[in-house]
Amino acid sequence: MNIFRFAGDMTHLISILVLLLKIYATKSCSGISLKTQELYALVFLTRYLDLFTDFISVYNTIMKLVFIASSLAVVCCMRMHRVVRRSYDKDLDTFRHYFLILASFVLALLVNEKFTFQEIFWAFSIYLEALAILPQLVLLQRSGNVDNLTGQYVFFLGAYRAFYILNWIYRYFTEQHFSRWIACVSGLVQTVLYADFFYYYFISWKNNAKMQLPA
């Protein structure tokens, strides 16, 4: 464990807490893409298959449980909760995310560390996570205005993987046999996808104005 990775995990946790706060406090999920939430639930379920077989540390196990439980809770809440579900932007959240699932799975079959069940699903979860934010970014683009909590949620979600890139650089230089190029390349793609969001987020923060994404 290094400071970059710990900062990344905490930033990721903050993004989840901000999302839960937004939904709980406003009893609304407007501006939140259910498809992105479903993709994230799939990412965690397929990445942590070794949750009960490989014990790495208490921290590792607890964080995995928190990520799985929170992503499933948000999906259930957005689908079932009678008040929250009414505020879901169903007609804006139309990204065909099944293609993302299919593309990630095909790529995982072709490019993986080892052709085993667990490794293929691990690579699948890495590729899918890089693309999972797309429905959310498309929804924000279409809805134009971004409310503060939603903007902060997406910002922290993007920032966490940027910390992980620093973590991989650090581990590359400090651990002789460290080679995790699947996660590195995918993490880079993931962070680049946020680039324009970060730009408009910074502009709105600098001008202390409400965040506007160009239609």
């Binding site: 070794d50 490989d54 790495i56 560390e113």
Partner: peptide, 10 residues
């Protein structure tokens, strides 16, 4: 597996 093993990251 110990820290630094293959999938020790979240």
């Amino acid at each position: 597996p110990p820290e630094g093993s293959y999938h020790d990251e979240l």
